[in-house]
Simulated scan of single mutants.
Amino acid sequence: MQRQTHEAVVPEALAGERLDRALAALFPDYSRSRLQQWIRAGRVAVGGAARRPRDPVRAGEAVTLEAEPATETPLLPEPIPLRIVHEDDALLVVDKPAGLVVHPGAGNPGGTLVNGLLHYDPALAALPRAGIVHRLDKDTSGLLVVARTYAAHAHLVAELQERRVGRTYQAVVVGRPTAGGRVEAPIARHPRERKRMAVVSGGRPAATRYRVAERFAAHTLLDVALETGRTHQIRVHMAHVGLPLLGDPVYGRRPVFPKGASEALREALGGFRRQALHARRLSLRHPDGGAEAAWEAPAPEDLAALLEALRGG
């Protein structure tokens, strides 16, 4: 199978990162494990020289990758209904419902957002990950941006790396913080439970800001903004500071019923079986011209009903 040569320049945002991690950010259509294999096989050059996976990279260094595409089952278009918030020649903005997986993978070979996007716009098959440059967990709802051209894809990846894409979430947490705050704590794979992430010394830097939007008897609605984009970041960080997301099956806790809660509230709290997290606002510099653009998505029905029940007590 013919090899493909890719070239990139290390941006300031990746300076000091391990080579394998930097490559995973620069070439998101390849898994980190495959990139590590190619580094060891001598298919990666940094400044014209071979490096080890753990070697740090410097801003401005030229990276060349010789990739050999694996033989994989092609992704098939599927007529999955999509909520398109915005559309132009360069990008799509999609309001993803909770329960929809973003990328096909083990246990989810089809029925994903990618399959739906390929049905909506077959030209996306030519782009890495069908143009998707950031993710939402399966049970998190809200806004995702999708590149429609190679130029837009490169622009959005660079903007994410330079932390110039604004992502604000609504989150219902268990607890009543006295004020907002900022969580800065490194995140990595849990040392024992490999399907979980955790705050781990030596993990990847991660920062999350939050402010109180509305208080309830035993819960709080927060506006949460990402400074970085680590896997499960908001869920891990909020649990880390003692404010786990309501309904989170991995990082949360059993339902907390405030004293004197009505039967309707008890049913709403006990019946909410996903993390109460919604990506409500997305802002970025548009790939064509650099103008600031922003979009918002209202809370989906299940989250809106939960908030109504919390307000009613």
Rank of each mutant, 00 (worst) to 15 (best):
R164C: 03
L91T: 03
L19G: 04
A171R: 03
G60F: 15
H219E: 02
G116Q: 11
Q170H: 09
P298K: 14
V114P: 01
G313D: 09
D121G: 07
A261Q: 08
R176K: 12
A152K: 09
I132A: 02
A279S: 11
P69I: 14
K96G: 01
L92W: 06
P109R: 12
E159M: 15
L144F: 09
K138Y: 00
P109M: 09
A98L: 07
P11Y: 10
A67G: 10
L310P: 05
S31T: 12
L117I: 14
R40L: 11
P128M: 11
R176P: 01
V256C: 05
E162F: 04
P205A: 14
R52Y: 08
L91D: 03
T178S: 12
G290S: 13
Q233G: 00
L127D: 05
T178C: 09
A154E: 13
G42N: 10
L75K: 06
H237A: 00
V102E: 00
G131K: 01
R266F: 01
L246F: 09
G105A: 13
Y120R: 15
A67L: 10
Q233C: 04
A125W: 13
N115R: 14
L265V: 02
R164Y: 00
F272I: 05
G111Q: 12
G289A: 12
M1N: 09
R32W: 10
N108P: 04
E193R: 15
W295E: 00
T228A: 01
H155R: 12
V146T: 08
R189A: 10
G242A: 07
E267N: 11
L246G: 00
A70H: 07
V212E: 02
E308P: 11
A225F: 02
G111Y: 04
A130T: 08
L127A: 08
R280C: 05
R52W: 10
E12R: 15
V93W: 02
Q170M: 15
H134C: 02
L246C: 09
I132R: 04
V236P: 01
A207C: 13
L310C: 06
L156R: 08
T231R: 07
F216D: 01
R58F: 07
G116L: 14
G290V: 11
L14N: 11
